[in-house]
């Protein structure tokens, strides 16, 4: 039981007891009170109940800028306990500045376990990537979201955006994709490719590369997406249908560069990013997922990546 400064005023004593009951178990000082965490968990549950639907929530101010993962941080802090194994990545890296900072914050606040091995993590907070390792039942992926509204670039009026979602009127989105093909010959949406969740809501998957989009389909894990600045939370529960928006004669394309492979582990079936080669030009490639790359080199990574597994699953579905 928490000890409070004793006082001879009986009324204060009553107030203290009331405070204690209101705020739940003895809070750890700093960052977040328990009532707020509960509010976040409710929003997450609503999001899981209505896959792809953007749940408004009273986003709190975090010790990081609104844009440095304040939304993801609120969800992560609401979910982790002392025995949680937490992995935090940015651009796929555990050692990125944003990832290190957020991990230090959460571990310092909650005292949970730091983890870099995707297989061992209970909660994975990420910015811009989904790990190459297929997620398992029970794992939660928390994605940081800079812009929650996939229709924002199409209609500015928020009432109209909500109407379109409510009536599943996505005709303007389809027209936009069609015009893209007419003008450019292909769909130029790069990262954050819009998806249709369970045949109902169009959702942004956050600015993950298209490489990661198929991994959301029928995932074993839960994906929670949280936008702190825009004050919205949405989610993809396990075994949910997630389809990138495209036309029948325009197959969805992920980023592949023929002949390119990670210079460290040699993989050509992972998402790789360019690095300067010996000649100073961006001529070499490395895995963006540093944990997977390290395990590939150690012979501790699976043959089949999450993307290959997801694509195989989709092919299987389409032949049934």
């Amino acid at each position: 039981m928490t000890t409070y400064p004793t006082t001879e005023m009986p009324s204060t004593d009553t107030a203290v007891r009331r405070t204690d009951r209101l705020a739940g178990p003895a809070p750890r000082p700093g960052i977040f009170d328990e009532l707020s965490k509960r509010e976040i968990r409710r929003a997450v549950l609503s999001g899981i109940a209505i896959p792809g639907y953007q749940v408004p929530f009273g986003s709190r101010e975090m010790p990081v800028a609104r844009g440095w993962g304040s939304g993801g941080l609120q969800v992560t802090l609401s979910l982790v306990g002392q025995d949680t194994r937490l992995k935090v990545i940015d651009q796929g890296e555990d050692a990125g500045v944003n990832a290190s900072n957020l991990r230090r914050l959460v571990v310092g606040h909650v005292g949970c376990e730091e983890e870099t091995d995707t297989r061992e993590a209970d909660v994975i907070q990420s910015r811009h990537r989904i790990p190459e390792q297929p997620l398992q039942d029970g794992q939660v992926l928390v994605l940081q979201v800079p812009g929650a509204e996939p229709l924002a670039g199409i209609v500015k009026n928020m009432d109209e955006q909500r109407r379109m979602h409510a009536e599943a009127d996505y005709s303007k989105m389809w027209v936009r994709l069609y015009e893209d093909i007419v003008h450019n010959g292909l769909i130029t949406n790069a990262a954050g490719y819009p998806v249709l969740v369970e045949g109902r809501y169009v959702m942004t998957p956050s600015p993950i590369p298209r490489w990661d989009v198929p991994k959301l389909n029928h995932s074993e894990g839960v994906t929670v997406l949280s936008a702190g600045r825009e004050k919205r939370i949405f989610a993809v529960p396990p075994h949910t249908l997630v389809e990138p928006l495209t036309f029948e004669d325009r197959p969805f394309e992920v980023e592949r560069t023929p002949g390119a492979a990670c210079r460290l582990c040699g993989s050509d079936d992972t998402y790789i990013v360019q690095e300067p080669g010996p000649d100073g030009t961006f001529s070499t490639w490395v895995c963006s997922d540093t944990d997977f790359c390290r395990r590939r080199r150690a012979g501790d990574a699976p043959e089949v990546t999450a993307l290959e597994a997801a694509l195989a699953h989709t092919r299987e579905e389409s032949t049934i």
């Binding site: 944003n98 811009h128 790069a190 993950i208 980023e255």
Partner: peptide, 26 residues
């Protein structure tokens, strides 16, 4: 508004590779 500005300073290379790939493809 400053949160959005601050976020511009974070690494975006995983996302940017995707952008470059589309530009090349187009």
């Amino acid at each position: 508004i400053t949160g959005y500005t601050e976020h511009q300073k974070l690494p975006h290379h995983a996302e940017y590779r995707s952008v470059l790939e589309r530009a090349t493809a187009a």
